Amino acid sequence: PAHPYDRLKTTSTDPVSDIDVTRREAYLSSEEFKEKFGMTKEAFYKLPKWKQNKFKMAVQLF
């Protein structure tokens, strides 16, 4: 299930529990994912792991 970005980011005051914290981005809706990352999930997962992590750090999901 998708969760709002505000509850997934590492600085959230009301974090979602029971998620894989190493894959926070996977819980974003497709729309919100595209808004935050500027690309689709499919394109994101084709990137090298280090680049994925760099993007995730930039949007507080790492």
Rank of each mutant, 00 (worst) to 15 (best):
T22Q: 07
K51W: 11
E25D: 02
Y27A: 02
M57N: 08
K9S: 12
A2V: 15
F62P: 09
A43C: 13
K9F: 12
N53P: 01
L61W: 08
K41G: 01
V16F: 09
S30P: 14
S29M: 02
L47V: 01
T11F: 02
D6R: 00
K54V: 13
Q60T: 04
A43T: 13
K36C: 14
D14T: 06
K36T: 15
T40L: 08
T22L: 06
T10R: 00
T11R: 00
V59Q: 08
P48K: 05
H3K: 04
Y27S: 03
L28K: 03
Q60D: 15
P48C: 05
P15H: 03
K36E: 00
K46I: 12
K34Q: 15
N53W: 05
L8G: 08
T11S: 11
A26G: 09
E25P: 11
Q52A: 04
S29W: 04
I19F: 07
F37W: 03
T11N: 14
K49C: 13
Y5I: 04
R24W: 09
V21D: 11
F62I: 13
T11H: 07
P15M: 04
N53M: 09
L47D: 00
D6K: 00
R7H: 10
Q60L: 13
S12I: 04
K34P: 05
L28V: 03
F37M: 07
A2R: 14
T13Q: 12
E42T: 10
W50G: 04
L61S: 02
H3D: 05
L8A: 01
R23P: 05
K46T: 13
Y27I: 03
A58F: 07
P48G: 00
D14M: 08
K36F: 11
H3F: 15
H3W: 15
K51I: 15
E42H: 08
K51F: 09
E25K: 02
F55G: 00
K56W: 08
E31I: 11
D18Y: 03
K9L: 09
E32S: 08
A26W: 15
A2Q: 15
K46D: 11
A43L: 13
P15I: 07
D14V: 06
K51E: 13
K49Y: 07
E32P: 01
P4S: 11
K34R: 14
K9V: 14
A58R: 13
D18G: 14
D6N: 01
F62G: 15
E25F: 09
T40G: 07
K54Y: 13
K54C: 14
M57L: 12
T40A: 11
V16G: 04
K56C: 08
P1M: 14
D20N: 08
Y45E: 13
F62K: 12
T40R: 02
K36S: 03
R24M: 09
A58N: 11
M39G: 00
L61H: 03
K51N: 10
Y45M: 03
V16D: 04
S12R: 02
K49T: 11
F37Q: 00
K51D: 10
K36P: 00
D6H: 00
A43P: 01
V16Q: 02
K51C: 14
D14A: 02
I19Q: 01
K51Q: 12
E35K: 06
T13Y: 06
T11G: 09
E42S: 10
K34D: 08
G38T: 02
K9Q: 13
A26H: 07
V21R: 10
K46V: 10
A26R: 05
F44I: 00
A58C: 09
K54N: 12
K46W: 11
P4T: 12
I19G: 04
Q52D: 01
F33Q: 01
G38K: 11
K49W: 10
D6V: 00
D20M: 03
P1E: 13
I19D: 05
E31C: 09
